[in-house]
Design a protein around this nucleic acid. Sequence first.
DNA 1: AAATGATACCTCGAAGTTCTTGGGTTGTCA
DNA 2: TGACAACCCAAGAACTTCGAGGTATCATTT
Lengths: 111, 111
Amino acid sequence: MKSDKELVGASTAVIILGVLAREPSYGYQIVKRVNEAADGVWEWQEGTVYPVLHKLEKDKLVRAQWQEADTGRQRKYYYITAAGRDALSTQAERWKAFNGIVAQLVETPHG
Amino acid sequence: MKSDKELVGASTAVIILGVLAREPSYGYQIVKRVNEAADGVWEWQEGTVYPVLHKLEKDKLVRAQWQEADTGRQRKYYYITAAGRDALSTQAERWKAFNGIVAQLVETPHG
DNA sequence: AAATGATACCTCGAAGTTCTTGGGTTGTCA
DNA sequence: TGACAACCCAAGAACTTCGAGGTATCATTT
């Protein structure tokens, strides 16, 4: 367990879906938001997020759309699809189950 | 998120440490116990566990010792070390923190 | 007691994933 | 026009997992 990498990796896709379920967003902003929430526990690199976004798009769980921001700059906004919401709730459930079992197994006798 | 693999991968080492913190054990038995606890949510293969055990040993978080079981058979028992216990509690804490943030991010507005 | 089959245990190589590194473009501001 | 910030992406390196197989022990049969 060299770094937090392994902890983080498992959940990238679920987190992104969660963020997009609240509100459409674009890669750069997703990174910012998640890193803010993570508050130092872990930190995403930009390069980490884009491949996952592309995969989610390919799987039709999100849909991408270039859009002009009020700044005049072009941004690639991602919207979660209906299938994406389904996947999100399924995965969130699975995550909870998984975490419960881990917690139980890791629970030590003497605190 | 093709399978449970990614969910599972993050925590293999922590889980093993947790199991060994309760009681020394050997590879085959660890697999059995964890799979029983996982109860279908995921399932370890034997080949998955041994590399991790070896890495933990190399990192001095566990210590291995061949021992004769009551059946007369030789088994390689793994014991958690003091450093291993430290790592376990550190990682368990980190896991909790991590999971809390994920839960918060994944929480959807409408259930 | 020798042979056979089943069980317990471990290792190694191949395959598939993810992250990191680093780069490339567009717009803003001095 | 130079520097900096916002924004996006590709490819290789590094990691893990899976699958197949190898060895040793026990039980059974004859």
